[in-house]
C-alpha cells in the first residue's frame, strides 16, 4: 500500500473539496450575508423610495397606491420643508465641527502624551458612554438643561444661564452623544503619525502651531473625514434627541417620525432627503482619501 494522506474522514474530504473549488468556497461564505444585504437592506431602501411615489387619501389617511410625484413637489415647493432640511444639515455640520474641535485635543492626549500602557484604558474610557442607553443619556441632558437645572446652577454665579431647550441644546446633546465616534479615528490617525515628522518640522524651524497646521492637520484630514461620516450621518438621522431637548425645534428626523402615521408616502419622500444628502457627503469625503483607508 502506498503511503498517501492519513485516513480521510468526512471533514477532511470536505475541506479538500473546498480547497480545490474556490468558487464553491466563496459562495458558501457569502450567500447568507448577501441575502441579508439584498433583501433587508437594499429591499427596505427600495421600498422606501417606491412608497414615496404613492399618496394618501386625505379623508381616511390610508395609502393609495397610485403613481405620482406630488410628495416631491410638496417638498421642493414648501418653504417649511426646505427650511427644516437646511436646519438639519446645519445641525449635522455644527455637531461635526464641534466634535472635531473637542475630539482633537482628547485624541492627542490619548494617542501621544499618555504613557503607552495607559492608552488602551483611556480608549475604553472614551467608549464607555456608548455602553449606556441613548435614551438615558438624552434624558440626563434634559435634566441638566432644565430651567433651574444643573447648567443654570453652574452658570448662575457667572451671571449666565443655560440655553434651555431648543436648537442649541440639540446641537450640544448630539455633540455629546457622537463624540466617541470622532475621537476614535483621530486617535488612530495620531497614533500612526511618525514622531520624526514632528521632529523634522521643528528642526526646519517650525513652531508648534506651524507644525500643527502644516504637518499634523493635513496628515490627519482622512481621519477627521472618517469621523465626520459618523457624526454627520448620525446627527442628520436623529429624531429622538431633538424631541427630548429640542423644545419646538423641527428637524428632518422628527418631521419624518410625525408623518409616519399621518402620511406614510410623504414620510418616505422626506426620508429620501437625508439619504441623498449623505450620499453627496460621502462623495465629498471620498475626495480626501478617507474612505480608501477605512
Amino acid at each position: 500500500m502506498t503511503k498517501t494522506a492519513p485516513a480521510a474522514g468526512f471533514v477532511r474530504r470536505l475541506a479538500g473539496t473546498l480547497h480545490r473549488r474556490p468558487r464553491l468556497q466563496l459562495s458558501l461564505l457569502l450567500t447568507a450575508p448577501l441575502t441579508w444585504l439584498v433583501l433587508a437592506y437594499l429591499g427596505s431602501l427600495s421600498a422606501l423610495f417606491l412608497s414615496a411615489f404613492w399618496t394618501t387619501d386625505s379623508f381616511t389617511s390610508s395609502v393609495v397606491k397610485v403613481w405620482n410625484t406630488d410628495n416631491f413637489t410638496t417638498l421642493f415647493e414648501s418653504d417649511v420643508y426646505r427650511q427644516v432640511a437646511l436646519r438639519s444639515v446645519g445641525v449635522a455640520l455644527a455637531v461635526t465641527a464641534l466634535c472635531a474641535v473637542i475630539a482633537f485635543p482628547v485624541a492627542f492626549y490619548t494617542a501621544r502624551i499618555a504613557k503607552p500602557r495607559w492608552r488602551p484604558l483611556l480608549v475604553v474610557a472614551i467608549l464607555t458612554p456608548l455602553w449606556a442607553s441613548y435614551l438615558v443619556k438624552a434624558y440626563a441632558w434634559r435634566l441638566i438643561l432644565a430651567e433651574g437645572g444643573l447648567l443654570d446652577w453652574l452658570l448662575g454665579p457667572l451671571g449666565l444661564e443655560g440655553p434651555g431647550y431648543g436648537l442649541t441644546a440639540t446641537v450640544l446633546v448630539l455633540t455629546y452623544l457622537w463624540l466617541p465616534y470622532m475621537i476614535l479615528p483621530i486617535h488612530a490617525g495620531l497614533e500612526q503619525l511618525p514622531d520624526n515628522l514632528l521632529d523634522a518640522s521643528a528642526d526646519l524651524g517650525a513652531r508648534t502651531g506651524r507644525t500643527f497646521r502644516s504637518v499634523v492637520l493635513p496628515m490627519l484630514l482622512p481621519s477627521i473625514a472618517a469621523g465626520s461620516v459618523f457624526t454627520f450621518s448620525l446627527s442628520l438621522g436623529d429624531y429622538i434627541a431633538v424631541q427630548i431637548v429640542g423644545g419646538k425645534t423641527q428637524l428632518i428626523g422628527n418631521l419624518i417620525y410625525s408623518n409616519i402615521t399621518l402620511d406614510l408616502p410623504l414620510a418616505a419622500a422626506l426620508g429620501t432627503v437625508p439619504v441623498v444628502i449623505i450620499v453627496g457627503y460621502l462623495l465629498a469625503v471620498r475626495r480626501t482619501g478617507a474612505l480608501s483607508s477605512l
Binding site: P194, N196, L197, D199, A200, S201, A202, D203, L204, G205, A206, R207, V215, P218, M219
Partner: peptide, 20 residues
C-alpha cells in the same frame, strides 16, 4: 532652546519626508 531656535538641521535615519 527648542529645535526651531537652533541653527542646525537634521537628516533623519528614515528620511522623515512629509508624505503629503
Amino acid at each position: 532652546l527648542a529645535p526651531f531656535e537652533r541653527d542646525v538641521h537634521t537628516v533623519f535615519q528614515d528620511y522623515a519626508l512629509f508624505p503629503h
